[in-house]
Design a protein around this nucleic acid. Structure first.
Length: 747
DNA sequence: GATTAGGCTTCG
């Protein structure tokens, strides 16, 4: 029989005249009549027929481990009946001896990295084939008639030799989840270790993500078939080659042994189950498997950690960064940043994102991770490896800190993202937990702290920081400085209603004053215990009289610069003149019994150039007599104190500016509200000071020079936060510039 | 059809 299947050790039953040949001595043209070659079947191709009808079968044999030759694999071609016979009984892992072969140049040596010659085996050449199978429960007849899982030999990691193709088992000590390489494939780097305590780092490539091992955590067990071993930096390295295949198993001791693989057919024997169990047990005590995983609720002390979460939204930020909105059912104990994106750029269920807003964290992923992040499906479960949490605080509020989440570029420490399947035990646990989360509870907590943070911006729901370079784009959309004199961009804020009111025009005040002057002052109220009155007549102005009431302290008049006067019948011009001399002026009119304040459309108090207004809705005005209580004390005539005793809710001057910002990817309107800090220009004084108006004009010209193209505009670095505005039933997101310090770049 | 990466944290 030219083909013998032997159930025993190699080399038994071999004719004694045969001599073993090493691949390194194998040459084309030498006489091989009394030589035999022995190797392990590492690959076999389907039995086929040549064009002339001859049966053809090809296998790859690998020389024994003791071989020192660099190339240790050789193609063996079977022709005719031998091809048929061998093709039916040979399987991977078998040891094969071939004798009486022809040696020919291998046409594929350059491509397959194998020996430069191949062996041709046929009856015509007088060849004999001995196949040594390992002891098996499968009988010989079954072997011949039905497909049987091939036998594989697995090389312990301390027995690896360069230039070989081997099958391996190992526990995962380190891994990089598949990432997009700079070439055409996905790449995954996996370091495994076995009971020999020898490590092997494998670099695995494949154009198909699924073909790479599905490793989810350190400690997982892998089985690699047909991995190439070679030397790199004086160390053994594993690399994918033709026919590479892998299985991955959960490394938890006692967990079900279910292989993760993309292969439709793979061998798996009871013996291999045992191998996995042994490796699991070994790894449990010899491998540090507790990775730095965390829940969002416990992130504080960790700088880098692995997060298992669900993706609820995603958005492109710019070319090198991408936003992932995720949650894991727990609440991050610190305020976390919210990354600013256009709502139209955000992919995901908006209603869900809103509902989960207090549990969602924003993660920015950078560079090489962007491509993969883009491909993620909203709703999928992810494990994000080596996520970086960074504590940050606003420049002007060091006590208000928040957390930023970054997945930096590169793959150091296995940094990356992996989609977990729905049946993954960690995902199942996460889902169950998410289902049990009481959203109402977390929302209440948030709304309380949010109110505190919001202060006067009561509707602010998103708090965070985003640093962005933008151009001031369209001068027209900025409330131009020329409009300062038109009082358009300085508003008054009604604190009790959170509403804006336009500052009344000076002419309105003049009209009110003229109206009051039409009725003569009542002499009955000219003097009282706490003020003295002087009345002046006017020239050529009919009956108009001006009454000035000087408020006394301790029954004495004070210096004019410390004095509060109440004026009746004066014109705007006269009041302005008086306000230069006296500390405070309260415009009044007289009734039959007393003096009283004017309508709140007019300022209730003038202090130098600042006119103080009160809110018509919130104020609960008291009599002018209430002022006497202030006059009794050492009066400093603070506007807030005056407003308080008169029952007036004061309005506050605020700059409201709309900036159109552009960062090259798009434009955004952001508002700036400011009281005093806008380049040290007080909102309350700018209306009445031409000096401050000039200063404002200059600043605006620097920020946004007129007639300049977008490219030439200066960059502005600023913090922006979003807040919700409710207009009836409609919710709108607006953006606000805050905590921003503008400095000129020195290049 | 070769190349990719070849472990060892942070620009944002």
């Amino acid at each position: 029989m030219p083909v013998q299947v032997i159930d025993g050790a190699p080399e038994t039953l071999l004719p004694s005249h045969l001599q073993k040949v090493d691949l390194k001595y194998l040459q084309w043209g030498c006489d091989q009549a009394n030589k035999y070659f022995q190797g392990t079947v590492i690959l076999s191709y389907p039995l086929t027929k040549l064009v002339n009808g001859t049966e053809f079968f090809k296998i790859v044999l690998q020389e024994s481990e003791n071989s020192c030759s660099k190339t240790s694999t050789i193609n063996v071609l079977f022709f005719g009946r031998l091809a048929d016979d061998c093709g039916k009984v040979v399987h991977q892992g078998d040891t094969m001896v071939v004798a009486g072969f022809n040696v020919a140049k291998s046409p594929s040596a350059n491509e397959d990295d194998r020996h430069c010659c191949h062996l041709e085996v046929s009856e015509d050449a007088g060849s004999a084939v001995y196949i040594y199978t390992k002891p098996s429960t499968v009988t010989a007849s079954e072997t011949a008639s039905m497909p049987v899982a091939p036998k594989y030999t697995y090389t312990p990691l301390n027995h690896l030799k360069g230039g070989t193709i081997v099958n391996l088992y190992g526990a995962v000590k380190f891994f990089k989840p598949p990432y997009v390489s700079k070439g055409t494939d996905y790449c995954s780097v996996v370091t495994i270790v076995d009971q020999s305590n020898v490590k092997l780092t494998c670099t695995l490539f494949n154009g198909n993500l699924d073909a790479l091992p599905k490793i989810y955590k350190i400690g997982d067990i892998v089985r690699f078939h047909r991995i190439k071993i070679r030397e790199y930096n004086k160390q053994m390295q594993g690399i994918t080659g033709i026919g590479f295949a892998s299985l991955t198993f959960d490394g938890t001791v006692g967990a079900p042994i279910v292989p993760r693989t993309s292969s439709k057919s793979y061998s798996f024997t009871e013996e291999e189950q045992k191998t996995i169990e042994e490796l699991r047990t070994w790894a449990a005590s010899n491998l540090s498997v507790c990775g730095p995983t965390a829940k969002l609720s416990g992130i504080q002390p960790m700088l880098f950690f692995d997060l298992t979460c669900q993706l609820v939204g995603k958005a492109e930020v710019d070319g090198s960064s991408f936003l992932l909105k995720v949650w894991d059912g727990t609440k991050c104990p610190h305020p976390s940043w919210k990354v600013l994106v256009e709502e139209s750029d955000l992919e995901g269920d908006k209603v869900l994102i809103h509902r989960l807003r207090n549990l969602i964290v924003d993660i920015l992923v950078y560079d090489n991770h962007v491509k993969l992040a883009k491909s993620l499906k909203v709703g999928s479960f992810l494990r994000i490896y080596s996520l970086h949490t960074k504590q940050a605080s606003a420049e002007n509020q060091p006590d208000v800190s928040y957390v930023e989440f970054h997945l930096h570029g590169g793959t150091c420490y296995g940094r990356g993202i992996r989609v977990l399947p729905e049946n993954n035990p960690d995902v199942k646990e996460l889902k169950a937990f998410m289902d049990s989360v009481n959203l109402t509870e977390s929302q209440n907590v948030e709304s309380m702290s949010s109110m505190e943070l919001d202060g006067i911006f009561g509707n602010l729901s998103l708090f965070g920081r985003y640093k962005i370079h933008m151009d001031l784009l369209d001068q027209k959309t900025i409330f131009t400085y020329s409009s300062i004199s038109q009082q358009k961009f300085v508003m008054q804020m009604d604190v009790c209603h959170n509403a804006w009111q336009e500052v009344p025009d000076g002419d309105d005040f003049d009209l009110i004053l003229r109206d009051c002057a039409a009725s003569a002052p009542n002499p009955e109220v000219h003097n009282s215990l706490w003020y003295d009155c002087e009345v002046w007549d006017t020239e050529n102005q009919g009956q108009r009289k001006i009454a000035v009431h000087f408020v006394k302290h301790d029954e004495l008049l004070q210096e004019p610069e410390d004095t509060l006067i109440m004026v009746q019948g004066g014109t705007l011009k006269e009041i302005r003149k008086l306000s230069r001399r006296f500390k405070c002026i309260i415009p009044v009119r007289s009734t039959k019994e007393d003096l009283e304040l004017l309508d709140l459309s007019a300022p209730f108090l003038l202090q130098g150039k600042i006119w103080h207004y009160g809110c018509k809705q919130c104020s609960n005005q008291k009599t002018i007599q209430s002022l006497s209580s202030l006059a009794e004390e050492e009066p400093s005539w603070e506007p807030t104190e005056i407003a308080r005793v008169l029952g007036i809710e004061p309005l506050q001057y605020v700059f409201v500016m709309k900036f159109t910002l552009d960062d090259g990817t798009g434009a955004l309107d952001a508002y700036l509200f400011d009281y005093e800090k806008f380049f040290q220009i007080p909102a309350s004084e700018v209306l009445t000071s031409s000096l401050l108006q000039e200063k404002m004009e200059m600043i605006m010209n620097i920020l946004c020079p007129s007639g300049t193209k977008l490219d030439d505009l200066p960059w502005l670095e600023c913090f922006i936060r979003s807040y919700n505005v409710k207009d009836g039933m409609e919710q709108q997101v607006c953006y606000q510039i805050f905590d921003t310090m503008v400095a000129e770049d020195v290049i």
